[in-house]
Design a protein around this nucleic acid. Structure first.
Lengths: 331, 331
DNA sequence: TTGAAAGCGTTACCAC
DNA sequence: GTGGTAACGCTTTCAA
């Protein structure tokens, strides 16, 4: 910056003002800009952050960047946050709470202005770290009973219960559930819990639960899970899956087994991923606005920043996101 | 840090040493650690970067985080880079070269230690910025004729040509191509070019090209593209698609039209995404090791950093990634 | 093994 | 509109 200043024949402060877009005489501004271009000067953001006491970072943590719902959420978030000139610090926790704590700790070192996390389960260490950081925090994809700060999500359990009712309304009575094997995916567990509750509430007998595969659940988990289900409960007439991914795998497996969907067995998914709409038969599913969750979370963070609310001062806000059962061909 | 030092009864320097893992007497280290825990102190990375003159950032740019191949590449990269303690600065260019330049400029302000980009096409501004930055650069997913620094990729055109030959070997003669409408996806364009070249080279008549949809190509692009193809060239006996996504969409559309795949029409994809293996019929495709591209790129960057090579000093290295045509049921 | 001082590249603040 | 000076919170370097 000194070099630029020297070449332009001004002080460093003037260069700084030009860069920040503050008021500078036009002629001066032009000279400075020329010097900048000539040198290919790029201002050091770390120095700026140190001096001004405010970084331009926003931290974002999702369980898996490869899952389309979370990458959609990130897209929604980045819209709102980049508009504020914030640079996203993105991390994936791999569904691991300890890894999440490590990432939070490491990101906090960059003094982010705010942070978005996925889920409502965190280690005590994570919570403490975030509370002490006093920056706006938003938890996504869930509705925590005791949010750290703000939250944007929905009840995964209730959504699953609604799907059970939908299936019952369509006449299915022997309904199974295909979930992931891991207890780390809390949202998946919530869906399972909702399924079990509603099956009991509706008097549909004992829950038929198969849990296969580590999160994130992928297409390839669906086939083996379906096989296991039909082996244990051959008379099952409908399956609901923790994700459209496994629902798709299950449907393909039905084709292979010569079962017609939904005639021989109905299959429902969760998430309304693209495949659910494109698949043949199209998959009945629960539609969740993943981009919207991110966008809403971003707005909450931005407005918390704008109002200068520290975490403690902000009224803890929970935003509930709508979901809908989308009836298609598969169930 | 002063607070920690005061409470522990040592100087700031000792605290700094404890944090950096330098040699400190055990008793002192314990006292310092206690003070850190007590205060919930988190060191400021920006200040550290400023002082030491080296950040802990690695910049990574992909066209789209939502595409599974690029998110796989990011996974490969983060393995190698996080092992070095580098924090990823992730950005998606949305297939837009101008946006790429803007992102590069903005990321360079954080003085990243290295940077990974996708593709070999960049604006002049981007190239200049990167050359002046003098940090290791790797371009991925392509083999540039004139790399900025290093590159990890393969010839998309040659891979497409190989697929044409595969189809010809299987007896198909009227082979169409379903690509994206956008010229911004250079890798897609290369595949198209390869298809055209090989169709001509093999004397298979005029290329039959349909271009539909913006990148990233998704499942929903496949159906309409197939319709358009069959409308224009009803006697087409095989289709190769720029991506497994559109191949899947095309196959589903075939089902709807009552066409059997591959009996009535063969369909091939590109990328070996999960859906290609799970789909019924399973999709013949070109398998590319997306994670491997990222991992290899990460290794190149890390070793360039280790050897202290500036960009200028490093022998420009190009790593060629293997691909294979995977024969499945759909073609 | 520990401490003191200098300085990293910016911006805030106050003069002019 | 512009410039000088003093931080910002660390690490480097050198000395004890």
């Amino acid at each position: 910056m000194s070099d630029v200043a020297r070449i332009a024949g001004v002080s460093k402060m003037t260069v700084s003002r030009v860069l920040a877009g503050h008021s500078v005489a036009l002629a001066t501004r032009v000279r400075v800009q020329q010097a900048i271009d000539e040198l290919g000067y790029v201002a050091d953001a770390a120095a700026g952050a140190l001096s001004s006491g405010r970084s331009e970072f926003a931290a974002v943590l999702v369980p898996s960047l490869a899952s389309s719902n979370f990458s959609d959420t990130v897209r929604g978030l980045s819209g709102a946050l980049e508009r504020e000139g914030l640079q996203l610090l993105l991390g994936d926790t791999d569904y691991d709470l300890v890894r999440e704590e490590r990432l939070v700790r490491s990101m906090l070192r960059y003094q982010p202005r705010c942070i978005a996390l996925t889920g409502s389960q965190h280690t005590d260490g994570t919570r403490q770290l975030l509370e002490r950081s006093r920056i706006p925090v938003v938890e996504m994809w869930d509705l925590p009973g005791n949010p750290i700060d703000m939250a944007v999500g929905f009840s995964n359990a209730r959504a699953a219960r609604e799907m059970v009712r939908y299936l019952k309304d369509r006449g299915y009575r022997k309904i199974g559930f295909l979930g992931g094997a891991s207890d780390l995916d809390r949202r998946g567990l919530e869906r399972l819990k909702g399924y079990q509750q509603e099956i009991r509430a509706q008097g549909l007998g004992e829950p038929r639960v198969i849990r296969v595969g580590e999160s994130p659940i992928t297409m390839s988990h669906g086939g083996p899970a379906l096989d296991a289900l039909l082996e244990q409960w051959p008379d099952t007439d409908a399956v609901m899956c923790v994700s459209d991914m496994s629902a798709f795998g299950a449907i393909m497996q039905c084709h292979r087994r010569g079962l017609s969907v939904p005639h021989d067995i109905a299959v429902a998914g969760f998430g309304n991923f693209e495949v659910a709409d494109c698949c043949q038969p199209a998959i009945t599913t629960v539609s969740v606005d993943a981009v919207g969750i991110g966008a809403r979370a971003g707005e909450l963070l931005v407005s918390a920043l704008a109002s200068g609310d520290s975490q403690a001062a902000s009224e803890r806000r929970k935003v509930t996101i709508d979901y809908t059962v989308i009836s298609r061909e598969s169930a």
